[in-house]
Design a protein around this nucleic acid. Structure first.
Length: 405
DNA sequence: TATACAATAT
DNA sequence: TATATTGTAT
């Protein structure tokens, strides 16, 4: 009894460290002041724990062991004085305090903060992730689907904006363009008489995008407004067109837009007609050419087979009435007209001016109406047609000998 | 010039 | 058979 093993003496010293918890407990059982010893060791353990806390990642097992030991000792301490306070609380509260202290004080602040932050972040991230996924059943597929949907939505929005800004794109689409394009009206109103680049550019100076749109739109309008209606403006427009590049004349393009909202009446401007005749030539005459072929050759955006067909029908009727054998001078007249037509402005001028240009057989016939000419009645029609069209059907019969009948 | 209809082709 | 193309008439 009186003799105390050295270990015991050491036991009370702070340096004392039992080999194992079991050893310590064994000591404890024989120790006089169990509680004090226990607490002492417990404090050291906790201190140790604090120290290695910063390296918990590197020393996970040590942490585990320490925690385990502490937990065990605390349990033991609880046994020693079970009445003091509710065991559970007693055990946990101190731990928590200790932990808080550790975090707040000696420990690697950053580490802790980072740790907590990481945890939080991780949690939050997980949550967010779950949100996105879970909302959609948390399956990758669904998530992906949702993402795509989102993209689609964004895309839609973008497209919508772009479309709103640039209706041209849709119009440029031949098929799409045909359908409704209400907005054009405003353009058309602004883009008055000058059909080609002038009007379009002038009105659209703001945005390049719109510019192109404007061109189309503006073109449409002119064809509708003046193209068929007023000769004078048309002649001017024609000139402008003639100067325009060889690609596709604006007036032609305009036609495509016309058909957008309602089916605008196709106005066969001189330029358009010139193309028509040109295609006709290539196809071997009005009789040989089919509407589809003509349309393809004309390369006029928005032009339909029906329109070409209708025009072809009319053309055939006219040419039929003034056949080569009718005694007209198709050769000369036609040649001259064709040339002038090619130049475009001339032909339009001629027809518009109504000057009794010898080039236009129609006019001649009309003028000589009183005569016994069998074509008289037709001439009347022709005359009117010529006026309305602003171009001479005959004029296009550049092929003298080959006149189709 | 647009449209409707019929004939024809694919 | 269905569709596209064409010619003709309205």
């Amino acid at each position: 009894m009186g003799s105390v093993p050295p270990e015991l003496s050491l036991d009370l010293r702070p340096s004392f460290v039992p080999k194992t918890i079991t050893d310590f407990l064994r000591h404890l059982s024989s120790a006089t002041d169990r509680l004090a010893t226990l607490h002492d060791f417990l404090a050291r353990l906790e201190d140790e724990l604090r120290k290695i806390h910063a390296f918990k990642r590197e020393l996970p097992i040590s942490m585990l062991l320490l925690n385990d030991a502490i937990s065990l000792l605390k349990t033991e301490s609880q046994k020693c004085r079970p009445r003091d306070c509710p065991p559970v609380l007693e055990e946990f509260i101190p731990l928590k305090k200790e932990r808080d202290q550790n975090e707040g004080n000696n420990y690697n602040h950053n580490d802790m903060d980072n740790e907590c932050r990481d945890k939080k972040n991780w949690l939050s991230s997980v949550q967010l992730w779950n949100n996105s996924t879970t909302n959609n059943n948390a399956s990758d597929r669904k998530q992906h689907h949702q993402q795509q949907l989102h993209k689609l939505e964004n895309k839609k929005i973008e497209e919508g904006q772009s479309v709103g800004e640039d209706p041209f794109q849709s119009c440029s689409n031949r098929n799409g363009g045909r359908r409704a394009f209400m907005p054009f009206s405003r353009y058309s109103s602004s883009s008055s008489s000058v059909p080609v680049a002038t009007a379009g550019l002038g009105a659209a100076t703001k945005e390049e995008k719109e510019e192109s749109v404007m061109n189309r739109l503006s073109l449409q309008t002119p064809s509708v407004k003046e193209g068929c209606g007023s000769r004078g403006s048309r002649s001017s427009s024609n000139r402008a067109v003639s100067s325009s590049p060889p690609t596709v004349h604006p007036s032609l393009r305009a036609s495509s837009l016309q058909q957008t909202a309602r089916k605008q009446r196709r106005c066969w401007s001189p330029e358009l007609h010139r193309r028509f005749v040109n295609a006709l030539q290539k196809l071997g005459g009005s009789q040989a050419a089919t509407p589809k072929q003509i349309r393809e050759l004309m390369q006029v955006d928005g032009l339909t087979n029906d329109e070409v067909k209708s025009h072809l029908q009319k053309y055939r009727l006219h040419t039929r009435r003034v056949p080569a054998g009718s005694g007209n001078q198709p050769v000369v007249v036609l040649g001259g007209l064709w040339m002038s037509q090619d130049q475009y402005n001339d032909s339009s001028k001629v027809s518009s001016s109504g000057s009794g240009s010898p080039q236009s057989p129609l006019h001649l016939t009309a003028g000589s109406r009183g005569g016994t000419s069998p074509t008289e009645g037709d001439s009347m029609e022709d005359d009117e047609d010529a006026r309305s069209e602003s171009y001479s059907w005959k004029s296009h019969m550049h092929k003298p000998g080959k006149v189709d009948v």
